[in-house]
Nucleic acid binder design. Structure first.
Length: 461
RNA sequence: GGCGGGUUGGCGGAGAGGUUACGCAGCGGAUUGCAAAUCCGUGAAGACCGGUUCGAUUCCGGUACCCGCCUCCA
């Protein structure tokens, strides 16, 4: 049995991973708020956790892993987008416009993550389908004294959970001293956070014991993970920016509502993504979505490779140079494994790297070594554990038939050798190179392959 | 102000208390009409200051610089 080790944010240590139930390893990843296209930063945890799920399925069996990733479809940005459409004259009620917007965004999200080779989770709950369960949990928290209703709001009383702040290493008093908290008249303590808030007529709302309103952000993950995974489960993952307050609040709610459960045992947090050395932000003009990259012709497999080439716990810098190098490596490997059946199992070095806190960069290095040794079957089997070199992501590398051009090159070359004049050969070679074709001439013949930046439109006729 | 992360060779990026990471680029060679690709070979590192140790880039402490979070942004 492969021993998996994972760095648990909760303990700040790398620990042996022992599932609660090896017959059903359960993990939850905080999913997107579906108001717009997923940006590249959204894709990092998805791809990283996709590799973790592949590893877990490899170790515990394909049927023994349950992977949940939610869609947050209650959100002020969604409301604003829908309201803007309504004001622009779109037909339908606000609720219908919201539903349209979130359905459309979920469709985009699926298409974009599919393009990165990320397998769909077993469950993809939508917050709006779990309003009752959220209300039930909020009711329990009020009954047990961990929450209070005031002015149409329900707030979680952070002072009633002794371990509040443990995950992120903060104390309530220090945070208040920082003074960047919303002070509201209905709060007992400035750090108390919203479980339920009132909605006016311009906002989506649900009837509740506390009046028409909508849930706060954090409660959905607590309610949905409880419903789908139980009061104790193995892994909870997300970006490090969610560590506080989102995950801290999830822990407080879940542990107070279900005091006999442990909630998530292992917390995995990935570091943030940067672009050419700077934070990705709209104001810096370096903000882009996954779809933007795909539309630029960068294959999903290349994006995936780049995302996996830095360990998940380190900041990752997206650069055009990395995409170029990744494409070259993938082309080379795809050439190597063409027509080869994968080995029965991935190479031990690759499994060992992944089992060691998901060292995807180390695993890629091991793939390079397999390629260097000419072990195509091992390379293929191992790469597939990382979701690379599979059929489904391979379209970009399958070039058109260039044999006619290769034959023309050969005849020109034979003629040139006889005439000692290579100008015609060189001219064709230059045209091919400009179209991104890789030319491999040996004394036996000419082989033409689509190379980096291949553009069929520029091929010589 | 509080909390967390980082600093490795030209670039990217890992592991390991003592032995080659790996990739790209470079350099030398083979090959080629010339190239490309391929193959062979090769130089190059561990922010700074202390400590522990026979020995640290790897452990501990401090300094500097960078980054993120504390604003329902992964």
């Amino acid at each position: 049995m492969v021993e998996i080790r994972l760095t648990n944010t909760k303990t700040r240590r790398k620990e042996d991973f022992q599932p609660l139930d090896p017959q059903n390893v359960r993990l939850y990843l905080c999913g997107p708020t579906v108001y717009d296209r997923a940006h590249l930063g959204n894709a990092r945890p998805v791809v990283v956790i996709d590799v973790l799920v592949r590893l877990l399925r490899h170790v515990y069996g394909p049927e023994h892993v349950t992977y949940v990733r939610n869609f947050t479809d209650v959100d002020d940005k969604i409301n604003a987008a829908a309201l803007a459409r309504k004001e622009a004259g779109a037909p339908g009620t606000l609720e219908e416009l919201i539903r349209q917007r979130t359905a459309e965004t979920i469709g985009w999200y699926h298409a974009d993550m599919d393009a990165l080779g990320a397998a769909r989770p077993d469950h993809e709950p939508r917050a709006t389908d779990y309003i009752d369960q959220m209300q039930r949990m909020i009711g329990q928290l009020i009954e047990s004294g961990h929450a209070y209703a005031r002015d149409g709001h329900v707030l979680f009383r952070v002072r009633s959970y002794a371990d509040y702040g443990k995950l992120s290493g903060r104390s309530v008093d220090d945070m208040i001293a920082g003074a960047r908290v919303e002070v509201a008249p209905f709060k007992e303590d400035p750090m108390d956070f919203v479980l339920w808030k009132p909605s006016d007529g311009d906002l989506p709302g649900w009837d509740s014991p506390w009046g028409r309103g909508r849930p706060g952000w954090h409660i959905e993950c607590s309610a949905m993970s409880y419903e789908l995974l139980g009061e104790s489960f193995d892994i909870h993952a997300g970006g490090i920016d969610l560590q506080f307050p989102h995950h801290e609040n999830e822990i407080a709610q879940s542990c107070c509502a279900h005091p006999h459960g442990q909630f998530a045992r292992v917390w995995l947090h990935n570091e943030m993504l940067q672009v050419e050395g700077r934070k990705m932000s709209k104001s810096l003009g370096n903000f882009f979505t996954v779809r933007d990259l795909l539309d630029q012709g960068i294959p999903g497999e290349v994006i995936r490779f780049v995302l996996l080439s830095t360990h998940y716990r380190k900041p990752m810098d997206w650069t055009a140079e990395k995409a170029r190098e990744a494409e070259a490596s993938l082309r080379k490997w795809r050439g190597l494994v063409a027509g080869i059946d994968p080995a029965p199992s991935p190479a031990p070095a690759v499994i060992a790297a992944l089992a060691d806190d998901l060292n995807t960069a180390g695993a890629i290095a091991a793939l390079h070594e397999l390629a260097g040794q000419g072990d195509a079957a091992g390379l293929l089997a191992s790469a597939q554990l990382l979701g690379l070199l599979g059929e489904e992501l391979g379209d970009w590398a399958r070039g058109p038939d260039l044999s006619v051009l290769a034959a023309r090159m050969e005849s020109l070359r034979a003629e040139a050798k006889a005439q000692k004049d290579f100008s015609a050969v060189d001219a064709l070679k230059r045209q091919l190179a400009e179209a991104g074709v890789e030319i491999r001439m040996t004394k036996d013949g000419t082989e033409l392959l689509p190379g980096a930046g291949f553009d069929p439109a520029r091929l010589p006729q």
